[in-house]
Amino acid sequence: MIDIQNVSKSYGAVPVLQDCSLSVKRGEVVVVCGPSGSGKSTLIKCVNGLEPYQSGSIKVAGVEVGARHTNLPKLRAKIGMVFQSFELYPHLCALENVMLAQIHVLRRSRDEARTRAMALLTRVGLAERAHQMPADLSGGQQQRVAIARTLALDPDAILLDEPTSALDPEMVSEVLDVITALARDGMTMMVVTHEMGFARRVADRVIFMDQGRVVEDAAAETFFAAPASARAREFLSKILAH
């Protein structure tokens, strides 16, 4: 589904990603973790073309992301993204947030978009708040709307960039529950996260990155039971300590 091969990226002289390779199969949930500055957010943004990369190749459903003639909007309609800071459209209510891309990217009629949007908001548990503005929603509620917004395009896969890092602790579980339900329904996902408990429950595979490199790529049970690299062991011990 997502195939990353030897991707490297630098900002000027500073290398950010160095020869990264990983793949995500259809229906798989892959968690990417690592210390700050390891390049995990940058890597995930390369997958849907939000960040350019200098060398290597990223293929999404067979389409090369970095090729000049690739229709990026079309590609992005098939891969959804959830951001750390939610990024809901502040001038539209929750329902309209979920409707916007349906109408303008998929060209659905307003009525169809509205029906589907209501269904999705119900699925994430926010049907009563459909007409509220993002400013009136809590962080956890905004993130759930953001997830509904991503689902509105019926994507083949979803990228999640630290979806709970900006949330107050008591709201983290409501969002993780929604993501877990998505995983159980068979959605292909690539998740950058620090939530190791969640990763343990949901991930099929775990990728550990450090300083722009993929250091470890293992099945979830293997990784959590006995990480192969010292760096990963050190990271896990710090994270799981609290």
Partner: peptide
């Protein structure tokens, strides 16, 4: 915020659409 523009692009909107539907209104 440029992050909002990124989020709109990530939904599959083209740049002209992002300008028309998100950046200009806000």
């Amino acid at each position: 915020s440029p992050k909002l523009t990124q989020a709109a692009l990530a939904c599959g909107l083209t740049m002209p659409q992002v300008l028309r539907l998100v950046v200009l209104p806000i």
